[in-house]
Amino acid sequence: MSNNNDDEKGLDPEVIEKLRTQAAELVEQVNAGDYARAMGLINELNEVRDQSLYREVGRLTRSLHEAIRNFQIDPRNAEQQEALSKMTDASDRLEYVVQMTSKAANRTMDLVEDTMPKAMALKEQAASLRDDWQRLRRREMEPAEFRELYGRIDNFFVSLTDEADSIYGSLSEILLAQDFQDLTGQVIQKVTGLVKEVEDHLLSLVVMASHVDQITGTVHDLSEAEPAEPDEKAADQGHGPQINAADRSDVVSGQDDVDDLLSSLGF
């Protein structure tokens, strides 16, 4: 919360002032023997504490709400606008990223699967023609065979032109299929921004909670907050891809590391 810098220093000056005056009055009343009034003052102090808590929570709620409302991305055309207007929260947006990347991957693989046999067929035709061509050069070919080869070479040139066109076309489409990166990149950046904001707000919440602790005089046993040992079931569930693998010693940084590890285990 950028508009609430007092957070860093401690309690609201207003609250501190109240605390000071009412504490002084409390001492006065206790010394004077007016215990009913003293109890009343303690209640008032409690209220001051509660109200400052509610105010902080209210502020946080507002800025979190704001962050979510501002969480928009710029659609480039009507179709995208329609697609994006349907998405109201980050998980929908990330689901959209999964769909987009999956669509692009499948489109690319369709084209590749379509193109590979063409390249293979051209290679086979060329290899067979090359063999016959070598025989012709060694003058091992009958005139009838040569006429047949002549025709095949002609056909090969025609199919070479057609197939090369089609392969070129598939490659350009594969290129275009990568345009998902633009839109998914935007969506991911927005979600990252939201996560960052939420992180900041959570940090503010922690700072605010520490003020509450200050008022209530609560001391936490931090050792309880240590993360529990992961049980076997959790380990079985897997962790997903590791980020910054190179900087971590408990994570392998590639296939070579895996191979080394396995061979050290006798594989």
Binding site: G254, Q255, V258, L262
Partner: peptide
């Protein structure tokens, strides 16, 4: 994509024949 050392060890102990990350 699981790349933690103890996971690879666990897979080896469970009897995996090969591990590709």
């Amino acid at each position: 994509a699981e790349a933690k050392r103890d996971q690879i060890v666990a897979a080896a102990q469970a009897g995996v024949n090969g591990y590709v990350v």
